[in-house]
Design a protein around this nucleic acid. Sequence first.
DNA 1: CTTATATGTGGCATAGTGCCACTATATCAG
DNA 2: CTGATATAGTGGCACTATGCCACATATAAG
Lengths: 243, 243
Amino acid sequence: MTLNNNMNYKSEKEFLNQYDAKEFESPLVTVDLCIFTLIENDLKVLMVKRSSFPEKGKLALPGGFIDLNSDSSIEETALRKLLNKTGVKSPYLEQVSTIGNKSRDPRGWSVTTLYFALLPYVDVIGANEFGDEVKWLSMEDVAINSMAFDHKELIHLARKRLSNKVSYTDIGFHVLPQKFTLSQLQKAFEILMDHKLEKKSFRRRMMAADLVQELDEVSAERGRPAALYQAKSKQPYFFARSL
Amino acid sequence: MTLNNNMNYKSEKEFLNQYDAKEFESPLVTVDLCIFTLIENDLKVLMVKRSSFPEKGKLALPGGFIDLNSDSSIEETALRKLLNKTGVKSPYLEQVSTIGNKSRDPRGWSVTTLYFALLPYVDVIGANEFGDEVKWLSMEDVAINSMAFDHKELIHLARKRLSNKVSYTDIGFHVLPQKFTLSQLQKAFEILMDHKLEKKSFRRRMMAADLVQELDEVSAERGRPAALYQAKSKQPYFFARSL
DNA sequence: CTTATATGTGGCATAGTGCCACTATATCAG
DNA sequence: CTGATATAGTGGCACTATGCCACATATAAG
């Protein structure tokens, strides 16, 4: 489609008067979110049970259409959806990819921009917009559930991006509460990356990267009490080779 | 926009009959390409001079609307555009990001999915679809040219992704001809990354990564003749720390 | 007081990197 | 033929980060 190319309007104004966006054939555009958190050392994704057709009753990612009147960008759409479902205003949010083709939605050509978010655990029951059923689904159970549209693939896309990015950035901090022990931090990184880490090496790198601030408190559960830390002002990268 | 959420159709079929995509308010969707190549050790981007409103006469990235009838995915749209402008069928092509907001196009809310491509140099004069002026613009000159829409920002986005990705993958090979010397390869990487490299370290890593195949030919210009190499079957990553 | 459990450190062998001087092989000028 | 110049390619060492794992430390439970 190169509708513009062969035309020769006398002025831009005339063009704008004569045409508006709705005259171009455009696909449906949605924004979908893959919201991750950690609950008791188990990685979870937020899912919604669809209450309407198509795909009624199936699990789907939270998301939906852009509100052309109130949203001024697609990031805003994503943040609005996130706030609706979780009550969280400022998560870690990153665009993963945009998938567009004519087969993913039974209604025809459709395009979705996928985001993923990282949050510390929040209770989500009843936090939803229209009484749709919203719940944290364990990543282990993603495989065994039937899902709407291509949302299972979307989850895998987001999951891959997550694992990868956690290994060379500090985004993993976002699933933890304010205060944490280095063991908790390591465990979180391991789960997010799906990869075991060496205790000494991990601590050495964390210290070298200067990403954490030791506090004067300790967390005592079993065994020797662990020092509590908090995240320092985040830096984009800390160049770990393979964590 | 959650048009689906409160409805309660009796069946999916009824839903599909009653509604089709055009009833939802959707933004304009385009695909834009940032096509890079190297000409005489100078990084170039392919630009088109717009022959119609809006932004008539300004430089713009090649791109345009999805053809809902012939394209079956947005990647296909991108490849079609690329083929139109350059005649190249199988470049390195990667999705960078999707930008959507209500201010980037004077016609209103619009969404574009940005791709970048890497090619060995091809002559592009006259290769275009509708007689639009198409040319390779030096990256040095991007700053001093006025550009349509937010395309200057799109170029910067693509440029950043390119620099970054070249440093930990082998995509840099795609701007070179089949046969090349290690010095040419290093120079290409340096330009793409915008970062000087150490000769010995570079060669050591290339060899260790087993990405190149030495040939029985040499390239003689000035000085000692250099061995020619060709790329081996590409692997996704070769884990260079900082090249 | 012993055991279980978890935190935190010491220290070494190994591998990858930056650095740069040095060698090798061509062309070109006179 | 000779020496200057230019580029290709290597030798080798100091430095740093990593993996590994044993050991020391600190608490609770029995």
